[in-house]
Design a protein around this nucleic acid. Structure first.
Length: 339
DNA sequence: AATAGCGACAACCGCCTCCAT
DNA sequence: CATGGAGGCGGTTGTCGCTAT
């Protein structure tokens, strides 16, 4: 059953590599090429684990690697991609020729993270620290009942603040006015996003929920209102989130919570969201960027309709958060995704 | 001169998925 | 079909060199 073990883990050298060991790896690869790494230590005369050899090669010895410091363009691209997809270092590194995931990860941890923090930007959410703190404050100041409700309603996974959809929409609106290098970076971010989407069906952005909302939560404000309890139509989720007013929760209770909650059935929403996300992204992943415009225009139409209801009335709780988030980001960082 | 603190980065660890057996 | 290693990946730790005290 199974394969034989690659090496005797207890009897191999560990720690830093010597120039002699590097030379052996290089000599072996130049003669035999890259193949089965478990055979490399034996054939190259090294007392190392095959996995260790592979790492040494991919992270340090590969001839196509750059060993000089990161450029400003690379730095900006890393930040943009990290904001869009998080710490998917291997995907980010693929967009930086000559850099490995380890390089990018180290550079982020030692330089970029600190740089962002100095600028007052939270390196995880890419939002201003003051905003993150105020958001936390708003949530923690909720009453016990409110917190319980939040627990039931908010999906546990925290997504990047800017969805692919937002990127596509902003690209359409602003791309033409941007310098060429910014456009290139922007396309790179989008390309990676499509890869992320195609590689992970679980990676979905809440913003995409809008694309597949049930009819009762469509962009048509009046029709959604018609299906709601009349008092509910005036309930403002955004206000609810930011308010310390204890009467707000009472107002919500009067709004037929049951109906609101059933309309916000997250499991079904997430499921349908996954379906449309996978569907649209199977297109995105398989087509070139020229074809993204088609999908983008469809999304744009949907969201244009959706956004006509400028109040959050009749929209989902999460949409309220995301809309607010989007407004804050646009106001604070008008150029964040201009490339 | 000694050493504590820090930054940079190489290397390891543990987990996951894929696939050979 | 079950098992377990290979390879990929992200997170963490270890090591080295530089600087401030």
């Amino acid at each position: 059953m199974g394969r034989p073990p690659c090496c005797d883990k207890s009897n191999v050298k560990r720690g830093l590599w010597t120039p002699e060991e590097d030379a052996k790896i290089l000599a072996y690869v130049s003669n035999h090429g890259i193949g089965n790494w478990t055979l490399v230590p034996k054939k190259a005369g090294l007392n190392r684990c095959g996995k260790s050899c592979r790492l040494r090669w991919t992270n340090y010895l590969r001839p196509d690697l750059k060993h000089d410091s990161f450029t400003l363009q690379e730095e900006e691209l890393i930040i943009s991609l990290h904001e869009a997809i998080g710490s998917r270092w291997s995907l980010i590194a693929k967009r930086l020729p000559g850099r490995t995931d380890n390089d990018v990860k180290n550079y982020w941890n030692t330089k970029l993270r600190k740089k962002l923090m100095k600028m007052g930007i939270d390196p995880i959410t890419h939002k201003p620290v003051s905003q993150v703190l105020s958001d936390l404050g708003s949530i923690s100041s909720l009453s016990k009942n409110e917190n319980l409700m939040m627990k039931n309603m908010i999906p546990t996974r925290i997504e990047p603040s800017n969805s692919k959809k937002n990127l596509i929409l902003e690209q359409k609106q602003e791309e033409q006015a941007q310098p060429l290098e910014h456009q290139v970076q922007y396309h790179q971010v989008q390309h990676v996003l499509s890869e992320v989407a195609s590689s992970s069906s679980s990676t979905s952005s809440s913003n995409l929920t809008r694309l597949n909302l049930p009819n009762s939560y469509s962009c048509n404000k009046t029709s959604s209102q018609a299906q709601m309890n009349p008092t509910c139509s005036s309930f403002d989720w955004s206000e609810f989130l930011h308010s310390d007013d204890p009467f707000m929760f009472q107002e919500l209770q009067q709004c037929d919570i049951q109906r609101v909650m059933s309309s916000l059935n997250f499991s079904s929403l997430m499921q349908s969201e996954g379906e449309i996300f996978n569907d649209s992204n199977s297109k995105l992943a398989s087509e070139d960027f020229d074809d993204v415009d088609c999908v983008a225009s469809k999304e744009y139409q949907i969201n244009n309709q959706f956004d006509q209801g400028h109040s959050f009335s009749g929209n989902s709780f999460v949409d309220g958060i995301l809309n607010k988030d989007s407004e804050i980001i646009k106001a604070t960082f008008p150029y964040t995704f201009d490339y």
